[in-house]
Nucleic acid binder design. Sequence first.
DNA 1: TAATTTACGTAAGTTTACTACATTATTAAG
DNA 2: CTTAATAATGTAGTAAACTTACGTAAATTA
Lengths: 285, 285
Amino acid sequence: MHAQNLINIIADELPNLNKSESKVAKVILADPDGATQSSIAALAKAAEVSEPSVNRFCKRFNAAGFPDFKLKLAKALVSGVRFVNRNVDPDDEVSSYTPKIFDATINNLAMVRDKISHTRVNQVVDKLIQAKRIYFFGVGASGSVARDAENKFFRFNLPVSFHDDVLMQRMLASTGSTGDVFFFISHTGRTKEVVEIAEIARANGSTVIGLTAPDSPLARVSSVTLDVDVPENTDEYMPMTSRIVHLVILDVLATGVTLRRGPDFLPHLEKIKNSLKPTRYPRTN
Amino acid sequence: MHAQNLINIIADELPNLNKSESKVAKVILADPDGATQSSIAALAKAAEVSEPSVNRFCKRFNAAGFPDFKLKLAKALVSGVRFVNRNVDPDDEVSSYTPKIFDATINNLAMVRDKISHTRVNQVVDKLIQAKRIYFFGVGASGSVARDAENKFFRFNLPVSFHDDVLMQRMLASTGSTGDVFFFISHTGRTKEVVEIAEIARANGSTVIGLTAPDSPLARVSSVTLDVDVPENTDEYMPMTSRIVHLVILDVLATGVTLRRGPDFLPHLEKIKNSLKPTRYPRTN
DNA sequence: TAATTTACGTAAGTTTACTACATTATTAAG
DNA sequence: CTTAATAATGTAGTAAACTTACGTAAATTA
């Protein structure tokens, strides 16, 4: 279940509350923002109950007490408000659509941050660590993500490549074997071509990792799936943000691999970093 | 300026605070979440100041008092931007480093969201609208960003290409002329090769746009620069997040162009979207 | 060096929230 | 239909937390 908002929880629990508790609930639901700013006495009066009733109400919803409850309520309000009205309007100015696009991206990242399965991440890191070869596959926008992944993972001193060409992908998948990791990146997880290729790879005993939508055909074919459940972009003007989320997840995986490799591996990374120095103008300040 | 996050405001004001106020600020910034849960007495003790000092501190930041301040702080914390200790530790578990990486990315996005010049964005959208051709250039990690940009901008029905090969870039730049837009993407803005190519393009009368670090050599060569000032990654384990910021800025630009094109252009975008339908397994639910 | 302003803390006062206990309502059993 | 038991709610007292007023110390300026 989605990380429930305190306000929704209260609304859901309303029928299960006893008389004075439900009085309190109604007052809070009627004006949650006002509730965060009033004292326990004021709220008790507004709900026509005693102060301890309000206090008990708070504890019922897993708050330490009234102040803690107000804090939680305030937090719930923010995340609620933030999800509203973030669509780009046809007559938006730069100053409107710019923050909207940033906010939409940030929101999706925050959502995935809270939902992503750490177990799965760990499993994928395991697979990547054990891999003899890694292939990053993606088409269209996901091709760029795959390319970026290559750019990160080649640092680990193992054969890594990315491919955005489905014929190449198909041929490589057909020659794969145990120890090879095929890492598929796909927003929808329903591109037939991609799913087919994943099936081929899987049939050859290779490990198939899917960075894609949960319950999608690709997810079902994968050995391990990293679910990315960001809302489809219904708005014409709002760009697709799943690519960004994919990139960050790949960052997480790369960090996971680096940490597993241990501190002895750092000099190697340092060497790669330093190799670029002569290509750059030195900093003056 | 965009609605700034309270935590950022405090961090910004830090140099302007007097002794005891800054003591309070430091304690709050070190653990904002902890601050929301502590009493004024506890906070005063932690900061080694008197309670009224904490109270004055709160009022300085437009809070009615300490409880109100805590409320605002709590709200600031949820708004996606967490200001926790963001460095990845060598002995971090998945459950620690995963949110850290997300948070670092989110933080940088929020920072750029609030700092980016809308005038500049508008100027760049102007240039892109007027362009006869657009070239997206990037090398290394920025190559993926350039590739992604191509994937977005080809939709506008004008000649767009991306190149991650410096020789190709150099040749194309040398043949450029007025009306051509060369869009350079670079984290540091100091890669000699890239700067040289930008100079060549500029010399031919082409428009050069730089999505790069402010005051960098590349920024100085560009006709218009979009400054991306994200902190250098000093931490070995923390991935470079500027790519992500670049991608989002390109999203913003693409949206800007779409909006300028007006509603008559939407059917064209729709057509492109629909063209992919037959490649996908239909949704079952 | 004195005057003035600003910064900070002490102590008292006020509000706020919590706890223990008492009372009232509700339910179940005889 | 009582009566006992339990649950729900409120009262009153207390402890904690917050704010205010005021005084002293530090810093700044003339």
